[in-house]
Design a protein around this nucleic acid. Structure first.
Lengths: 196, 196
DNA sequence: GTCTATATCCGGATAGAC
DNA sequence: GTCTATCCGGATATAGAC
């Protein structure tokens, strides 16, 4: 789920975006500043403003990139060739990755709490991201149930929304407590969806 | 889940706490200020500092009051006399109440995202609150399963943690999208836990 | 218990030199 | 593309009058 050409050191613009996303996920949108980024990258805040004039631009860019990554990821043969239950496992792996990156929260989980304080453009992008993610998962769940390898009651869309909010919440739990809380919830999900 | 004596107009100290909690739930901890509270209550920021010297004091007071309310609520005969599945429904009602109050998020869902930016004392109080809530729900689930009226696989503690994070996440979903998203997830939960 | 006045700091953002 | 310098607003917080 990385989309860089083989460049060892990304350009400044990308390094800003990478770091901003890291800070967003670990501190929230209102609690990170251009100065945080500037200090870490050893540049001045004005340089950041050159690439992203306003904080809103920066926030929007983060979410849009994540949407592009999702689209690309959904289309990878490495993913589309998999069986539904394997695609579900692949999605689980992404969330496990969040946990291990010391980030411990996904974009939705980071932005939902302060949603009402976000610029309109960011709100709209986040809505699109969650809709697209839900849509993808609903398709996987439906196909898995048809094939008899994924189990759940009710409508695929409802179940997909439930699973995604649970995963987001589980990452938040890991932040408040520790990894074991996440794995507890995680295994509970797996137990219910993928019974042998 | 209200613990005021029959006073029509609460004292300033309480009005501050009430409003601060409302602001916390709707904007997050870092995005509300003493000035917001002061303007709404038609007093000056210095008056707030008199009652709660620092913002940390205010934040801690909010969580501690919620913990006291939970303890009181758990012990009410109106609750303890109920059957497990009814206690579960009563808990669901609390979350439905959040939704209808235009608040649309619980304390955990509000604070988890910016957790790392919170004062240590608030972090500790929030940990205690979630532990106590999980403990309560785990007991209800276990009793319900023993009585054959609540259905779930796995350990009661794991299921309790999963249900609570799902509820927290569902409220966040309602904020990002609309109430229907919440009800979808909500009915999915009910469908799985309380089958007829 | 609430006010005025103020100290201090940090946030996002812009102008213009290099 | 990055810098220096600066503006402006808003944040938490305190001192001391009333």
């Amino acid at each position: 789920m990385s989309n860089q050409p083989q460049v060892l050191v990304p350009d400044t613009r990308t390094r800003i975006l990478d770091l901003a996303q890291q800070l967003l996920l670990s501190r929230g949108f209102n609690a990170f500043s251009y100065q945080h980024i500037a200090k870490e990258l050893a540049v001045k805040p004005a340089a950041i403003h050159y690439h992203y004039p306003t904080k809103e631009d920066l926030g929007v860019a983060i979410i849009q990139r994540q949407r592009r990554r999702l689209h690309k990821w959904r289309g990878l043969p490495r993913l589309t060739d998999l069986l539904p239950q394997q695609q579900l496992e692949a999605l689980f792996e992404v969330y496990l990755g969040h946990l291990q990156n010391e980030q411990r929260v996904c974009l939705f989980g980071s932005l939902a709490a302060e949603f009402r304080t976000l610029p309109e453009a960011m709100q709209q992008e986040l809505r699109l991201l969650t809709l697209e993610l839900t849509d993808f998962l609903a398709g996987v769940l439906e196909a898995g149930r048809a094939a008899g390898t994924i189990a759940f009651k009710g409508q695929p869309t409802a179940k997909a929304a439930q699973v995604l909010t649970t995963l987001a919440g589980a990452l938040q739990m890991a932040r408040v407590h520790d990894e074991r809380q996440f794995h507890m919830i995680f295994e509970q999900l797996r137990l219910e969806l993928l019974p042998e």
